[in-house]
Write a protein that binds this DNA or RNA. Structure first.
Length: 173
DNA sequence: CGACTTTGACCCGCGC
DNA sequence: GCGCGGGTCAAAGTCG
């Protein structure tokens, strides 16, 4: 199974790999097509596999107000989940990738004027997380970081981002 | 009524 | 050892 420890997939910006090139191309096309209602002005997409240092400290920032102890913050081993950052040029922060996300937090980043939004997949058993952040330099660029892999079919019939994600998963195997 | 967003508080890791 | 920054949770509120 996902035995990809570290890099999930290598994305060559040199466009040497036909697979990578195809993927990015499809992504652009799909986005434009699927977002025909909202501005959808995606201009550029940059895929970047984020550092192997993804660790998931497993520290539940749980607000155990009343609990005096409860130090059982997931003694499990560091489950290194694959983290992928997508840089998309769009006017909207929320990209419709077909999955249903629930916002669970918002934090202001020091180096950015715009706050960072944290989303989590609402599907049961699917702990895929994603964080969206807008660049302070270019307010038209949105960086979406995905953490984890969806293990369930998509809800919406949109074949946009989901396609790419699926392909990525396939390539990573 | 259900699902989702908002917002403040809490916790942890790391740097100094 | 302390402080900062980042990440998460939970209660209340909002919307369809």
């Amino acid at each position: 199974m996902n035995d990809n420890s570290g890099e999930l997939f290598s994305y060559s910006s040199s466009s040497t790999s036909s697979a990578a090139a195809t993927t990015s191309s499809s992504y652009l096309s799909l986005n434009m097509v699927s977002n025909n209602n909202n501005h959808a002005n995606y201009d550029h997409v940059v895929m970047d596999h984020v550092s192997p240092s993804n660790d998931t400290p497993s520290r539940r920032g749980g607000v155990d107000t009343t609990s005096e102890k409860i130090n059982m913050r997931r003694p499990e081993k560091k489950i290194k989940k694959p983290k992928h950052a997508f840089q998309t040029r769009s006017q909207v922060d929320i990209l419709d990738d077909g999955y249903r996300w629930r916002k669970y937090g918002q934090k202001a980043v020091k180096n950015n004027k715009f706050p960072r939004n944290y989303y989590r997949c609402t599907h049961q058993g699917c702990n895929v997380k994603k964080q969206v952040q807008r660049l302070t330099n270019d307010d038209g660029v949105v960086v979406t970081t995905y953490e984890g892999v969806h293990t369930h079919p998509i809800e919406k019939s949109t074949d946009n981002f989901e396609n790419i994600l699926t392909q990525m998963q396939i390539y990573s195997r």
